[in-house]
Amino acid sequence: MTAWIKSLYIGLILLLLVAPIVVVAGVSLNEAQSLRFPPQDLSLRWYGALFREPDWLVPLRNSLVIAATSSLLAVLVALPLALHVWSRRGWLSRGLYTLGVAPFMLPPVISALGFLVFWVSLGMYGQMAATIVSHGVFLVTLPVVTISLGLNAIDPALIEAARTMGAARGQVLRTVILPLIVPYILSGYAFAFVLSLNEYIIAYMVAGFTVETLPIKIFNSLRYGYTPIMGVVSVLFILLAVAVFGMIGRFGNLPRLMGSERVRDQ
């Protein structure tokens, strides 16, 4: 197959993926409260409205707080998990890894219902803490995968060298291993953060009526009438995702992070 057919195919699919986003971005620029594309009377008033209307400001704050704390929680669980799996073998390692990957592999509605009955039993249904912990567990898979990749990329000779020079286990961990995997920890956090912002079903099942997040707010507005603010939120989320993954791609090796082993350098 010639190169241009390949590029054409890739370009066509990317076009299809980007098309809905372009339309939504256009819609968010409408002056009037209507969804028209191409937009009429360009204006940025709905971008300001997102940060002024309490209706949208509260979900925005909820979403940010939940994403920031639940991703931190996910990393705090994933880091010891990945370290243990990496340095030791045996049933505990295998079991922990399966447990770490499972939440993200199951249809989320199942985990969502599990969390719902769990928090109902504890009497914490409807609290923000319930959403945070649920998201933390659900998203633990992402830092587990990125940190494991980072650990497996460490040259064993480095650790051997540190040991030969007389470093104790804790010293090796602190001064050799952890600094080497910091980028992988950060990208795991970033992945989890972006996905938590966008997550709907778990947040809805665990505390949907009391702790409104942005996706829940958008869905509720979908039922009761469209406003360009929905387009604004979508655009901001997309920009944030592109910024986060673009940074990872700029400063890290994204193909390697996604599991490619042979990548031609430009």
Binding site: L17, P20, V24, P255
Partner: peptide
């Protein structure tokens, strides 16, 4: 990959809203 990951992270709500638009 950046484009794919950005699309992947999009909320079902946003995808539904975008496509219905």
């Amino acid at each position: 990959l950046v484009i794919l990951l950005s699309v992947l992270s999009l909320s079902e709500v946003i995808i539904g809203f975008s496509l219905s638009t």
